[in-house]
Amino acid sequence: MSIGAFLARVLLLIIVVIWTVPTFGLLISSFRDKDQLAISGWWNALQNVQENQAGRTGVATAQQELDGQFVISGNVFSEGSTQSVASFGGGFVPGEITDYEPGTVVELEDGTTFRLDADGTYEYASTEPFELDRGLRFFYVANIPPYFSLDNYEEVLTSEGFAQSFINTFTVTIPATIIPIVVAAFAAYAFAWMEFPGRRFLFVIVVGLLVVPLQMSLIPLLRFYNTVGATFDFAAKSYPGIWLAHTGFGLPLAVYLLRNYIGGLPRELIESAKIDGASHFQIFTRLVLPLSVPALASFGIFQFLWVWNDLLVALVFLGKQADQIVMTSKLRELLGSRGDNWEVLTSSAFVSILVPLIVFYSLQRYFVRGLLAGSVKGG
């Protein structure tokens, strides 16, 4: 193996690792407990996590007299908890939170004693009866062992309206993928094999539309929809409206890819069909379309992924009713207006990519062939 080939493989391996590590971390985080997600990174998922917590003693009505002492006891952890106490201190206990080890009996200035064990059990003892209307606060460092569950996925999948939003996403994505493919295929054939005035100029305009930012066209397009919607009944806040919007945004790339691919087909094949008396429509449907499956599949993957993961266009062109809200908008609602439930992003990311992964791996055999053939040679 040459040095160049070895370096190329090493570079490829580095790129793969850099690309994969964040996804791997997101996958691990999706199974972690919400509290652990908030205080440690995914690389600490197999380690005990330490967290500062606060507890309170019971009140006077909870005291018991044992061996001539009055004792208030309890446990800072809930039943079945696997946490343990690493140290304690602070609050009504003198010192810092790390000053005392579990099981240490701390003598207070008023003659009372306090002890906190590793399992969370505490005893607050005095020779005189307690007169506490409210428990006294103390602090401790808790060891939290690793915990993995499907709670994050359950929260997403069982949330109200999620199933309907999943169906709505299919309702948007499937037509918004098929329509631009059909339109672009006809246009690409015309640009590649039909002679008409201004063909090259029109194709340059189509390619130029690739650089138009989607965000700049949303408001003008929305106003246009609102203007003509009363007449044609496909205004914004409807499925036809968002289908046409995604079609318009996807057509430039579709026409560019398909035109280059179709233009690269053997000229002899097209001319033989013309000699046999085939019309352009017959050539397109019987020859060009079957030979263009790789290019069609390549663009189909791009368009499906784009529409499936879209949030901005859906927010503009669809309403917030249960029968219209798409999955990305639903997950945004679960996140909360202030991002309080950000941990659902870890599980929702993998829920949302399940369908695109199935589509990609189903069509991947056409993907590279379609892109290479459409980018190397033009008609």
Rank of each mutant, 00 (worst) to 15 (best):
2 S>G: 11
5 A>N: 04
9 R>N: 10
10 V>G: 00
10 V>Q: 03
11 L>G: 12
12 L>Y: 03
15 I>T: 08
23 T>D: 00
28 I>M: 13
31 F>N: 05
36 Q>G: 12
36 Q>Y: 08
39 I>G: 06
40 S>A: 15
41 G>M: 09
42 W>Q: 02
44 N>E: 14
45 A>Y: 11
51 E>I: 12
52 N>P: 07
56 R>W: 09
62 A>I: 03
66 L>P: 00
68 G>C: 07
69 Q>F: 11
75 N>Q: 07
79 E>K: 14
80 G>L: 04
81 S>L: 07
83 Q>I: 00
88 F>K: 05
90 G>C: 06
93 V>M: 11
94 P>E: 12
95 G>F: 12
95 G>M: 11
97 I>C: 03
98 T>C: 01
98 T>Q: 10
99 D>W: 10
107 E>P: 10
112 T>R: 15
112 T>K: 15
112 T>D: 11
115 R>K: 15
116 L>P: 09
125 A>D: 08
133 D>F: 10
134 R>L: 14
137 R>H: 02
141 V>E: 08
143 N>M: 12
146 P>K: 04
152 N>T: 02
155 E>C: 00
156 V>D: 00
156 V>H: 02
156 V>Y: 05
159 S>Q: 08
162 F>V: 13
163 A>F: 15
166 F>V: 05
169 T>Q: 07
170 F>S: 03
171 T>I: 13
173 T>V: 09
178 I>K: 07
184 A>T: 06
185 A>N: 00
186 F>D: 04
186 F>E: 02
187 A>M: 14
188 A>L: 07
203 F>T: 07
204 V>L: 13
204 V>F: 12
208 G>A: 12
214 L>V: 15
216 M>R: 07
224 F>K: 01
224 F>M: 15
226 N>M: 10
228 V>D: 02
234 F>C: 05
237 K>G: 08
240 P>H: 01
242 I>T: 12
250 G>Y: 01
253 L>H: 01
253 L>S: 08
255 V>C: 09
265 L>K: 08
268 E>G: 13
270 I>K: 06
271 E>W: 09
276 D>P: 13
276 D>F: 04
276 D>G: 12
277 G>T: 09
278 A>C: 15
278 A>D: 10
284 F>V: 04
285 T>C: 03
286 R>M: 14
287 L>S: 01
288 V>R: 02
303 Q>Y: 03
306 W>A: 13
307 V>D: 10
310 D>I: 06
315 L>D: 02
317 F>N: 00
318 L>N: 02
320 K>V: 05
323 D>M: 03
324 Q>V: 04
327 M>R: 00
328 T>P: 01
328 T>D: 01
330 K>T: 04
331 L>K: 01
332 R>P: 01
336 G>I: 05
339 G>H: 07
339 G>V: 08
346 T>Y: 15
347 S>Y: 09
349 A>Q: 03
355 V>Y: 06
362 S>F: 12
364 Q>M: 09
364 Q>C: 06
366 Y>S: 06
367 F>I: 06
368 V>G: 04
371 L>Y: 01
374 G>K: 02
375 S>Y: 07
376 V>Y: 10
376 V>Q: 14
